[in-house]
Simulated assay, not measured.
Amino acid sequence: MKPWVLGLTGGIGSGKSAVVEAFGQLGVHWVDADHAARWVVEPGKPALSLIAERFGEAVLASDGSLDRAALRERIFQDPAQRKWLEELLHPLIRQEVAGHLARATSPYAIMVSPLLVESGQYRQVDRVLVVDVPEAVQVERAVRRDLSSEAQIQAIIKAQASRAERLRHADDVLVNDRDLAWLKAGVERLHNFYMTLRGGQE
């Protein structure tokens, strides 16, 4: 039987990676849409040559890989270029993610995406789990991890879906405001529940 798909999301600093690793330790297959977004533009992949053709060699690093910062600069100011890039990459990322999920041998598989709600990817999954933390914790963690300023992190939080918007799409919420042992216990509880579900719904 094809595994059903759990979409996992949360704002910056919410601890998505710790959560998905805990699921992974329980034998659940997972794929990160952010990783897939990097795989589809690796050297030798058709998307990379199309991007270079459109934006010029300046968006390539000296080793032939994509210079993300240079590309970001080009599309940041220009909505039409950004739209072109999204139309090229989104279907490829979807395919890449679907390919990974199809190889899952666990009863359910997880797609991790920070933009699950914003990008509409939540429509491709059977159930949505939101890792939620109070904003103050989010900021403190992200500042520590990325060595960014508080203002930078606040700007990212503002650009992401609001916490309320994310929670509106959630079937399950895991509050991650304590330590790792607490988090793992929460993941185990959810995992045991998920193992009883058919197709991701009660």
Rank of each mutant, 00 (worst) to 15 (best):
K2D: 15
K2P: 14
W4A: 01
V5P: 01
G7D: 07
G7Y: 02
T9D: 00
G10V: 00
G13M: 03
S14M: 02
G15R: 00
S17Y: 07
S17P: 08
F23L: 07
Q25N: 10
Q25V: 06
G27Q: 09
V28I: 15
H29L: 12
H29P: 10
A33V: 09
H35D: 15
R38D: 00
W39I: 13
P43H: 01
P46N: 13
L48N: 05
L50Q: 14
L50A: 10
L50C: 08
I51K: 04
A52L: 06
A52M: 05
R54N: 13
R54E: 15
E57K: 11
S62N: 06
D63N: 12
D63V: 03
G64E: 01
D67S: 13
A70G: 11
L71Q: 08
L71R: 06
R72A: 15
Q77A: 15
R82Q: 15
W84I: 08
L88V: 11
L88N: 13
L88S: 12
L88D: 14
H90T: 08
P91A: 14
P91H: 10
L92R: 11
Q95F: 05
Q95I: 04
Q95R: 12
E96Q: 10
E96V: 02
H100N: 14
A102W: 05
R103H: 10
S106G: 08
S106W: 02
L115P: 01
L115M: 13
S119Y: 00
S119H: 02
S119V: 02
V128P: 00
L129I: 05
L129P: 01
L129D: 00
D132A: 13
P134G: 09
E135D: 05
Q138S: 09
V139A: 03
R145I: 10
D146T: 11
S148E: 11
I153S: 02
I156E: 03
I156D: 04
I157E: 01
I157P: 00
A159S: 13
Q160D: 06
R166C: 00
R168S: 14
R168H: 11
H169Y: 03
H169V: 04
A170Q: 04
D171Q: 10
V173Y: 00
V173Q: 01
L174F: 02
L174C: 07
V175Q: 06
N176W: 04
R178Q: 15
D179T: 06
D179R: 05
A181V: 12
A181H: 10
L183H: 03
L183R: 02
K184V: 15
A185I: 09
A185W: 07
G186F: 03
V187K: 04
V187M: 08
E188F: 05
R189P: 03
M195T: 11
M195A: 13
M195D: 12
L197T: 02
L197I: 02
L197E: 03
G200E: 12
E202I: 07
